[in-house]
């Protein structure tokens, strides 16, 4: 991924190149989400005529990933902190959550949130999209928690001691000193999780979310032409995961002060 930074002028600082890569990737992503219909429409049947459906499926997939990805990182941070809490019941609750989520299939979790949760919590009404976001966020949050916990544990104890000795509160110590270092350590596994999340978001199709896989599969079933329809679907996923890894590669570069990578 670091090759991507090489296209920028050498006199730019690492940080400027990283920012440029992130900005360029974001622009590519936005152009792709709204512009992919155009090249797809030039394709022959059966893809060409339904280019707009593919484009809207792509947008739904990206929104699913962004929403559940951000929520999943927040859940991951909170759970990681809870796992390291001095008060045992908080640790137990966090362990229970991670254990349950990692021990059950994501497909079951998606179905559970959509069908079972409203039955358990009266009055709860979630749309198919929201249900999918909740299930995906809860799922990736558990995996993120492990990555972030490992990052926090890897920050030397002397860092906390130095911060506390300066009079920083526990919260300030975490926010200003421990978390930035832990996040850097946790970033590669977090990126793995988010890339996996992008692909796992396809499971939202079982509860009727019209995301990319759903579009591809329905078209395949309607036209009996699996090769062009599913190849198109797969290619769009590939573009999305590539853009995602470019962005995370740039973030890694930005945090890598020592330039070890």
């Amino acid at each position: 991924m670091n090759v991507a930074l090489g296209v920028w002028p050498a006199r730019w600082t690492r940080q400027q190149r990283s920012t440029a890569t992130i900005a360029a990737s974001a622009v590519v992503l936005v152009l792709f989400m709204w512009g992919v219909a155009k090249p797809l429409s030039w394709m022959p049947d059966p893809v060409g005529p339904v280019a707009d459906e593919f484009a809207s499926g792509t947008r739904v997939t990206v929104w699913l990933t962004l929403a559940s990805g951000l929520a999943g990182i927040a859940i991951g941070v909170l759970t990681a902190v809870a796992k390291l809490a001095p008060f045992p019941p908080i640790r137990w609750a966090a362990d229970l959550y991670v254990w349950a989520v990692r021990g059950t299939p994501l497909l079951v979790q998606v179905l559970f949130v959509y069908f079972a949760l409203p039955a358990i919590v009266p009055g709860l009404q979630l749309s198919d999209f929201t249900s999918a976001v909740v299930a995906l966020a809860v799922n990736v949050g558990a995996y993120n928690a492990e990555a972030i916990r490992a990052g926090i544990v890897a920050v030397p104890k002397g860092q906390t001691e130095a911060a506390r000795a300066l009079g920083l509160s526990p919260l300030q110590t975490f926010r200003d000193v421990v978390f930035p270092q832990a996040f850097k350590i946790a970033l590669p596994p977090l990126v793995n999780n988010v890339v996996a999340l992008l692909k796992d978001s396809s499971l939202a199709y079982v509860i009727g979310v019209v995301e990319l896989s759903n579009v591809g599969n329905r078209l395949q079933a309607a036209t009996f032409e699996p090769v062009p329809t599913l190849a198109t679907t797969a290619t769009i996923y590939l573009v999305l995961t590539t853009v995602l890894t470019r962005i995370s590669g740039a973030i890694e570069q930005r945090l890598d002060l020592e330039q070890r990578r």
């Binding site: 130095a162 911060a163 200003d176 930035p180 002060l257």
Partner: peptide, 11 residues
């Protein structure tokens, strides 16, 4: 306090 291992914040 000043520590043996400096404990500067590396970031």
């Amino acid at each position: 306090m000043v520590f043996q291992q400096f404990n500067l914040f590396p970031h």
